[in-house]
Structures are given as structure tokens and as C-alpha cells.
């Protein structure tokens, strides 16, 4: 029982550390937020269930990404009768790229916090409304009394500003 207790603590620490990245990995491959969230739950439960097989000291992130990748493929197979946006080839390429990009994306995530603070107050509030309440664009529009089109375009603009700001923070003036 003592070993299980230690395993639990280790797993908790590792999952806590990498969970956001695992979610992001899934999100890249599964553009629908609801599906991605469900898959993340599924992956987390599987990781816990299979933790006994994980070789301590090896790369937990890579192991978790593999299981997540498998889960995504499974999910796509279950949905094979529905129209699919991405081909299998695209998914494989995105998955491969995503693992290689993970450290760079992690750096971007640190820059995002700073860039968020630099947004105009009104833009920050719009981001908060959209993401803090897990609202949709139409519900944000209803709450603010703005049109759906206005909110959609405003959020699109804000995301563009955030991306540019993160680029500048990380790369300085270097062009892409």
C-alpha cells in the first residue's frame, strides 16, 4: 500500500505539471472544444489506469502524448461516418509537429500572460467574458448588447494582437 501511495503522489505531480500541455496537444488535433475536453478526460483516466506501466524517470510528456494521440485516432475512427475536416495525413503531421513544438509553445504560453495584461481594458473584458464563463460568441454578444458579428470580429482581432505580441516578446524584431 505504501508503494501505491507514492505512485499516487508521483502521478498527481506529473499530471498536474503536464495536463495543460496534454490538453493543448489534443486541442490541436481535435478543433472542436467539447470533443477535446471529453478526450482530455478520457486520456487522464487512461493515464491513471496505465500509470503502473509507466517507466519511472522516462519522459512522461511523450508517453502521455502517445496515449493522447492513440485516443484521438480512436475517436476519429468512431466518427468515421461523419464528414471529417482533417485527413489522417494532416493529423499525423500535426501530431508529429506538435511534440516537436511543445517547448516553443510553452514559452509562448508564458508570454501570453504578459500580453494579456497589455490588452486594452475593453479587450481583456471581452476575453474574460468569452473564456472565463466558457461562453459562446452569441452568449457574449447577448450579454454585452453587441451583435454576434461584432463580438466575433473583435475576438478575432484580439487573438491576432495576442499572437503578434507573443511573437514580439519571444522573437523581438525578428521576422517570421
Amino acid at each position: 500500500m505504501g508503494n501505491q501511495d507514492i505512485d499516487t503522489k508521483e502521478f498527481v505531480a506529473l499530471l498536474t505539471r503536464y495536463s495543460r500541455r496534454i490538453y493543448s496537444f489534443i486541442r490541436v488535433l481535435v478543433p472542436n472544444q467539447t470533443d477535446a475536453e471529453d478526450l482530455f478526460q478520457d486520456v487522464s483516466i487512461t493515464l491513471w489506469g496505465k500509470y503502473g506501466t509507466f517507466r519511472k524517470g522516462s519522459d512522461f510528456r511523450a508517453w502521455a502524448f502517445q496515449i493522447a494521440h492513440y485516443k484521438v485516432l480512436n475517436f476519429r475512427q468512431r466518427q468515421s461516418r461523419l464528414p471529417r475536416l482533417f485527413t489522417d495525413d494532416i493529423v499525423e503531421k500535426l501530431a508529429g509537429d506538435r511534440l516537436l513544438l511543445d517547448d516553443a509553445l510553452e514559452a509562448r504560453s508564458h508570454a501570453l500572460a504578459d500580453c494579456y495584461q497589455r490588452l486594452r481594458l475593453e479587450d481583456r473584458e471581452l476575453i474574460d467574458l468569452r473564456y472565463t464563463e466558457a461562453a459562446t460568441v452569441p452568449s457574449v454578444a447577448a450579454q454585452t448588447g453587441r451583435s454576434v458579428d461584432y463580438v466575433y470580429k473583435a475576438l478575432r482581432r484580439i487573438h491576432g494582437e495576442l499572437h503578434r505580441c507573443i511573437d514580439e516578446t519571444i522573437h523581438g524584431d525578428d521576422p517570421k
Partner: peptide, 24 residues
């Protein structure tokens, strides 16, 4: 996305940005 690695990189950056805001 099929043909261009730079496009896949930008796509991943943007989706990661959405994911981070959804998460945080």
C-alpha cells in the same frame, strides 16, 4: 496544413493560444 510546415506551426500556435485561454 497538408503542404506547409510553417502553416502547421502557425495553426498549432493559434490553437494552443485558444487552449491556454480555455484552460487558464
Amino acid at each position: 496544413l497538408e503542404s506547409d510546415a510553417a502553416s502547421r506551426r502557425v495553426y498549432s500556435e493559434l490553437m494552443d493560444q485558444f487552449a491556454l485561454l480555455e484552460w487558464e
